[in-house]
Protein backbone atom coordinates (compact mmCIF):
# COMPACT_ATOMS: atom_id res chain seq x y z
CA UNK A 1 0.00 0.00 0.00
CA UNK A 2 1.42 3.35 -0.93
CA UNK A 3 0.84 6.73 0.62
CA UNK A 4 -1.93 7.70 -1.84
CA UNK A 5 -3.85 4.55 -1.06
CA UNK A 6 -3.34 5.22 2.64
CA UNK A 7 -4.78 8.69 2.11
CA UNK A 8 -7.89 7.27 0.43
CA UNK A 9 -8.48 4.97 3.33
CA UNK A 10 -7.92 7.82 5.76
CA UNK A 11 -10.75 9.68 4.03
CA UNK A 12 -13.00 6.65 4.52
CA UNK A 13 -12.11 6.68 8.23
CA UNK A 14 -12.85 10.40 8.45
CA UNK A 15 -16.30 9.84 6.95
CA UNK A 16 -17.05 7.01 9.36
CA UNK A 17 -15.98 9.08 12.34
CA UNK A 18 -18.14 11.99 11.24
CA UNK A 19 -21.16 9.71 11.31
CA UNK A 20 -20.20 8.55 14.75
CA UNK A 21 -19.73 11.63 16.90
CA UNK A 22 -20.34 10.48 20.41
CA UNK A 23 -18.87 12.77 23.01
CA UNK A 24 -21.38 14.38 25.28
CA UNK A 25 -20.84 16.52 28.32
CA UNK A 26 -21.23 13.58 30.69
CA UNK A 27 -18.48 11.59 29.00
CA UNK A 28 -16.03 14.47 29.03
CA UNK A 29 -16.82 15.15 32.67
CA UNK A 30 -16.26 11.48 33.39
CA UNK A 31 -12.78 11.82 31.96
CA UNK A 32 -12.10 14.85 34.12
CA UNK A 33 -13.07 12.89 37.23
CA UNK A 34 -9.83 11.10 36.74
CA UNK A 35 -8.15 14.06 38.35
CA UNK A 36 -10.13 13.48 41.53
CA UNK A 37 -9.55 9.76 41.33
CA UNK A 38 -5.81 10.30 41.31
CA UNK A 39 -6.01 12.48 44.43
CA UNK A 40 -8.27 9.97 46.12
CA UNK A 41 -5.92 7.11 45.30
CA UNK A 42 -2.99 9.07 46.69
CA UNK A 43 -4.85 9.55 49.98
CA UNK A 44 -5.86 5.89 50.15
CA UNK A 45 -2.32 4.74 49.37
CA UNK A 46 -0.83 6.99 52.06
CA UNK A 47 -3.26 5.65 54.64
CA UNK A 48 -2.58 2.05 53.65
CA UNK A 49 1.18 2.61 53.91
CA UNK A 50 0.69 4.20 57.34
CA UNK A 51 -1.26 1.15 58.52
CA UNK A 52 1.56 -1.12 57.33
CA UNK A 53 4.13 1.01 59.20
CA UNK A 54 2.02 0.88 62.37
CA UNK A 55 1.74 -2.91 62.05
CA UNK A 56 5.53 -3.12 61.79
CA UNK A 57 5.87 -1.01 64.95
CA UNK A 58 3.99 -3.57 67.05
CA UNK A 59 6.72 -6.29 66.97
CA UNK A 60 9.32 -3.56 67.62
CA UNK A 61 7.36 -2.52 70.71
CA UNK A 62 7.02 -6.15 71.84
CA UNK A 63 10.76 -6.63 71.41
CA UNK A 64 11.49 -3.57 73.56
CA UNK A 65 9.04 -4.83 76.16
CA UNK A 66 10.89 -8.13 76.45
CA UNK A 67 14.42 -6.72 76.61
CA UNK A 68 16.10 -7.70 79.90
CA UNK A 69 18.06 -5.15 81.93
CA UNK A 70 19.73 -5.52 85.34
CA UNK A 71 18.77 -1.98 86.36
CA UNK A 72 15.19 -1.72 87.55
CA UNK A 73 14.88 1.91 86.45
CA UNK A 74 16.06 1.20 82.88
CA UNK A 75 13.80 -1.86 82.66
CA UNK A 76 10.80 0.15 83.76
CA UNK A 77 11.55 2.99 81.34
CA UNK A 78 11.92 0.53 78.45
CA UNK A 79 8.62 -1.09 79.33
CA UNK A 80 6.93 2.32 79.41
CA UNK A 81 8.46 3.18 76.04
CA UNK A 82 7.37 -0.19 74.59
CA UNK A 83 3.82 0.28 75.88
CA UNK A 84 3.75 3.80 74.39
CA UNK A 85 4.91 2.50 70.99
CA UNK A 86 2.44 -0.41 70.98
CA UNK A 87 -0.43 1.85 72.10
CA UNK A 88 0.34 4.44 69.43
CA UNK A 89 0.55 1.70 66.79
CA UNK A 90 -2.73 0.04 67.80
CA UNK A 91 -4.57 3.36 68.09
CA UNK A 92 -3.07 4.45 64.78
CA UNK A 93 -4.33 1.32 63.02
CA UNK A 94 -7.84 1.73 64.46
CA UNK A 95 -7.94 5.45 63.62
CA UNK A 96 -6.69 5.07 60.05
CA UNK A 97 -9.07 2.19 59.37
CA UNK A 98 -11.89 4.44 60.58
CA UNK A 99 -10.70 7.29 58.32
CA UNK A 100 -10.38 4.97 55.37
CA UNK A 101 -14.04 4.01 55.63
CA UNK A 102 -14.96 7.55 54.57
CA UNK A 103 -12.47 7.60 51.69
CA UNK A 104 -13.75 4.26 50.43
CA UNK A 105 -17.29 5.64 50.35
CA UNK A 106 -16.28 8.29 47.82
CA UNK A 107 -17.42 7.42 44.32
CA UNK A 108 -17.20 10.13 41.68
CA UNK A 109 -19.93 8.58 39.61
CA UNK A 110 -22.36 9.02 42.52
CA UNK A 111 -23.97 12.02 44.21
CA UNK A 112 -21.78 15.10 44.68
CA UNK A 113 -23.46 15.80 48.02
CA UNK A 114 -22.49 12.42 49.50
CA UNK A 115 -18.93 12.73 48.18
CA UNK A 116 -18.66 16.23 49.61
CA UNK A 117 -19.87 14.95 52.98
CA UNK A 118 -17.26 12.16 53.02
CA UNK A 119 -14.34 14.35 52.00
CA UNK A 120 -15.31 17.08 54.48
CA UNK A 121 -15.57 14.51 57.25
CA UNK A 122 -12.18 13.11 56.23
CA UNK A 123 -10.66 16.62 56.23
CA UNK A 124 -11.98 17.17 59.76
CA UNK A 125 -10.45 13.91 60.92
CA UNK A 126 -7.12 14.93 59.41
CA UNK A 127 -7.27 18.18 61.43
CA UNK A 128 -7.90 16.19 64.63
CA UNK A 129 -5.15 13.76 63.69
CA UNK A 130 -2.71 16.64 63.18
CA UNK A 131 -3.47 18.04 66.64
CA UNK A 132 -3.16 14.62 68.25
CA UNK A 133 0.13 13.92 66.45
CA UNK A 134 1.74 17.20 67.42
CA UNK A 135 0.42 17.57 70.96
CA UNK A 136 -0.02 13.99 72.12
CA UNK A 137 1.77 11.29 70.11
CA UNK A 138 5.03 13.15 69.48
CA UNK A 139 5.42 14.30 73.13
CA UNK A 140 4.50 10.84 74.53
CA UNK A 141 7.01 9.06 72.29
CA UNK A 142 9.65 11.72 72.92
CA UNK A 143 9.21 11.80 76.69
CA UNK A 144 9.13 8.00 77.05
CA UNK A 145 12.21 7.76 74.79
CA UNK A 146 13.94 10.46 76.80
CA UNK A 147 13.09 8.57 79.99
CA UNK A 148 14.83 5.46 78.61
CA UNK A 149 17.90 7.53 77.72
CA UNK A 150 17.92 9.13 81.13
CA UNK A 151 17.77 5.78 82.90
CA UNK A 152 20.45 4.31 80.64
CA UNK A 153 22.58 7.38 81.27
CA UNK A 154 23.50 7.66 77.59
CA UNK A 155 26.12 10.05 76.25
CA UNK A 156 25.39 13.46 74.74
CA UNK A 157 25.61 12.12 71.19
CA UNK A 158 22.64 9.80 71.85
CA UNK A 159 20.64 12.76 73.15
CA UNK A 160 21.45 14.74 70.03
CA UNK A 161 20.33 11.79 67.88
CA UNK A 162 17.01 11.73 69.75
CA UNK A 163 16.49 15.46 69.26
CA UNK A 164 17.43 15.30 65.57
CA UNK A 165 15.02 12.36 65.13
CA UNK A 166 12.25 14.37 66.80
CA UNK A 167 12.85 17.41 64.60
CA UNK A 168 13.11 15.27 61.44
CA UNK A 169 9.90 13.44 62.38
CA UNK A 170 8.09 16.72 62.87
CA UNK A 171 9.35 18.14 59.57
CA UNK A 172 8.33 14.98 57.68
CA UNK A 173 4.87 14.97 59.25
CA UNK A 174 4.30 18.68 58.52
CA UNK A 175 5.38 18.05 54.91
CA UNK A 176 3.12 14.99 54.65
CA UNK A 177 0.09 16.79 55.98
CA UNK A 178 0.65 19.72 53.67
CA UNK A 179 1.70 17.98 50.46
CA UNK A 180 -0.23 14.75 50.65
CA UNK A 181 -3.27 15.27 52.79
CA UNK A 182 -4.14 18.97 52.53
CA UNK A 183 -3.37 19.38 48.82
CA UNK A 184 -5.20 16.22 47.70
CA UNK A 185 -8.22 16.93 49.89
CA UNK A 186 -8.28 20.44 48.45
CA UNK A 187 -8.04 19.12 44.90
CA UNK A 188 -10.97 16.72 45.46
CA UNK A 189 -13.05 19.48 47.06
CA UNK A 190 -12.35 21.89 44.19
CA UNK A 191 -13.35 19.32 41.60
CA UNK A 192 -16.55 18.54 43.44
CA UNK A 193 -17.29 22.26 43.67
CA UNK A 194 -16.74 22.62 39.92
CA UNK A 195 -19.12 19.77 39.24
CA UNK A 196 -21.70 21.22 41.59
CA UNK A 197 -21.51 24.59 39.84
CA UNK A 198 -21.92 22.90 36.50
CA UNK A 199 -24.92 20.90 37.71
CA UNK A 200 -26.55 24.03 39.12
CA UNK A 201 -25.99 25.84 35.84
CA UNK A 202 -27.50 22.99 33.91
CA UNK A 203 -30.53 22.96 36.20
CA UNK A 204 -30.98 26.72 35.68
CA UNK A 205 -30.65 26.25 31.94
CA UNK A 206 -33.28 23.48 31.95
CA UNK A 207 -35.65 25.61 34.04
CA UNK A 208 -35.19 28.59 31.71
CA UNK A 209 -35.88 26.58 28.61
CA UNK A 210 -38.78 24.78 30.20
Amino acid sequence: MELDELKNRWTVLEKQLKKNEILNKQLVLGMLHKKSDKSLNRLINTDVISIIIYFLLIPVGIWYYNVKFPSMGALLSLKIFAIAVISVAVMGIIWISYKLRYLKKIDFLKSIKDNMYCITKYAMMIKQEKLASYYLVAPVIFISGAFVYYELKVTLSFWSILIVALIAGLIISVWMYKKIYDSNIQSIKLNLEELRELEEEEEKHIQKNG
Binding site: K25, V28, E193, E194, E197, L198
Partner: peptide, 14 residues
Protein backbone atom coordinates in the same frame (compact mmCIF):
# COMPACT_ATOMS: atom_id res chain seq x y z
CA UNK B 1 -15.21 31.47 36.58
CA UNK B 2 -14.56 27.76 36.61
CA UNK B 3 -17.84 26.64 35.13
CA UNK B 4 -17.28 28.90 32.14
CA UNK B 5 -13.80 27.43 31.56
CA UNK B 6 -15.19 23.94 31.89
CA UNK B 7 -18.01 24.67 29.47
CA UNK B 8 -15.60 26.11 26.89
CA UNK B 9 -13.32 23.13 27.33
CA UNK B 10 -16.10 20.60 26.86
CA UNK B 11 -17.24 22.38 23.69
CA UNK B 12 -13.69 22.37 22.37
CA UNK B 13 -13.31 18.65 23.08
CA UNK B 14 -16.62 17.92 21.38
Amino acid sequence: DNSYIEKTFIEMIQ
